[in-house]
Design a protein around this nucleic acid. Structure first.
Lengths: 220, 220
DNA sequence: GTCTATAATTAGATAGAC
DNA sequence: GTCTATCTAATTATAGAC
């Protein structure tokens, strides 16, 4: 990965994918939000540029094609995941109930503060195509492998269901964590509850710890 | 709701929304699949018509606007839900563990055989807008009310978490059921498992019954 | 009822001024 | 680096032949 020198930040190299800082990053951030909300076809480059407050011509200037913009936005989303989850997905540290509860709470907190991440995963995971294949091969498979390893480690020491296929457990866990945040606008309208409020995020994590790890003093 | 006479099926009334049968129904079915897969903006009426094998001009002929097509497709999806779930969402019958397990299995089976339903809910529930408001007010709120009532009934008699907010429990349940089917293409590529196969559908239901209702003989 | 043809709008990408 | 202007293609909806 190329480093960006202070000089390059005002006079960027032309060949690298790292050019100017602020506008490029602003477009990426806006595009991630738009792609996750409206899908690749539904999000127009014009609307992304308008939302970012820049000209539409800057998108092909920085990213050449819409597909490249999408890929860089996805890379950015997974950068944020890994920096937020840290070593929690790696197989290290203790594997007792407290460690599992901590992992659940960290994951819930990440999804709640990055709903665009789960929207993007759901957007592209629901249909076959070149974007789905790229996303799975580059990002999702390593992530799922890490989760599966994590599950098999904690399953021994807590009251986790024994013979459950890790694939099913994976999607049960991810779905039970993410759905309320993915559907936040619907949830607000149907029930009046804003799941993104800190109180509700904690309530959701509490419920999940209880469901998956049992009642033993509810570990907080 | 207007009934369709045999005469109206070949010479449909012009004012009613029920006109000719086969082509209209074919477009509706195709549109539901397309809207759920690519979203309202991402699914073009041309591609829907092409997929259905009819001319693009037939869509404004039968449905006037794209929005009307979308609404009728959504109505159709909820018709299928209610005919599949039957009285299970109504507050009737026994409320013991076996009844709860049956409800879980029926719901899993419906979602597995109608992934377009959950795709559509996720597609529209993730952002605020006129379609989301229409969908929630017309279909989702009654559905969630039924589920919430059901949860509160069975929570007393089984080992369900006591103090959990029904909204959180709702989304935990729905997410844990639906995510693997919503992400079926991703699941196939990342793990090789096709969650839509009957064996996997049953395995998923087993896992959910175990998770939510506990291990007592696993009730099958 | 189904089609072709087309109008009006919007899409992604390019060219070139500054 | 950012903008305006424009090209080509695709969008929804309409008009009208059959």
């Amino acid at each position: 990965m190329p480093r960006v020198t202070p000089a390059a930040r005002t006079a960027p190299a032309k060949r690298s994918s790292e050019k100017d800082a602020s506008t490029r990053e602003l477009i990426l951030q806006t595009a991630l939000e738009a792609f996750s909300l409206k899908g690749f076809d539904g999000a127009s480059t014009r609307s992304i540029a308008a939302q970012a407050g820049v000209n539409q011509g800057l998108i092909p200037y920085y990213f050449k094609t819409k597909q490249t913009l999408w890929r860089e936005a996805v890379d950015r989303a997974f950068d944020e995941l890994h920096s937020a989850m840290g070593g929690l997905l790696a197989s290290e540290g203790p594997s007792d109930r407290e460690a599992a509860a901590r992992m659940i709470r960290v994951y819930v907190a990440f999804v709640a503060s990055h709903p665009e991440f789960v929207r993007l995963m759901n957007e592209e995971g629901k249909r076959t195509g070149p974007r789905m294949r790229w996303l799975v091969d580059r990002h999702v498979r390593p992530l799922v492998d890490g989760l599966t390893t994590l599950f098999s480690r904690v399953a021994d020491e807590i009251g986790m269901p024994k013979g459950i296929d890790p694939t099913h457990l994976n999607y049960i866990f991810v779905g039970s964590v993410a759905m309320i945040f993915h559907q936040a606008p619907e949830c607000r309208r149907v029930s009046g509850v804003d799941p993104l409020e800190e109180r509700e995020v904690e309530a959701h994590a509490d419920a999940l710890v209880h469901l998956f790890l049992g009642d033993s003093t509810l570990g907080r």
